[in-house]
Amino acid sequence: MSKFFISCDEATTICDKNQYGEATLFDKVKLSFHFMRCKVCKVYTKHNNLLSKIFGNYAKDHCQKQHCLSNDDKEKIEIEVSKKLK
């Protein structure tokens, strides 16, 4: 039975893994047991879920960007590389 009881530290770590879909079924059972006796971790989880939504929304904007070097930067690198090539 003691296997089911986890500390708040462990509970929040499981909660974090769960945000990425990487908590196991057993982890989730342990988390639910923990919530029955800990309101603080429940609040933490609520916040964490909301933060994940915010992170996800932010990621949507960010990942589509293709990053390039400016011509100026390329020229500078080109000069340095050709110095070494000589």
Binding site: Y20, E22, F55, Y58, A59
Partner: peptide, 8 residues
């Protein structure tokens, strides 16, 4: 992990 979505 979170923004670029790489696998662990």
């Amino acid at each position: 992990k979170t923004i670029q979505g790489f696998e662990t």
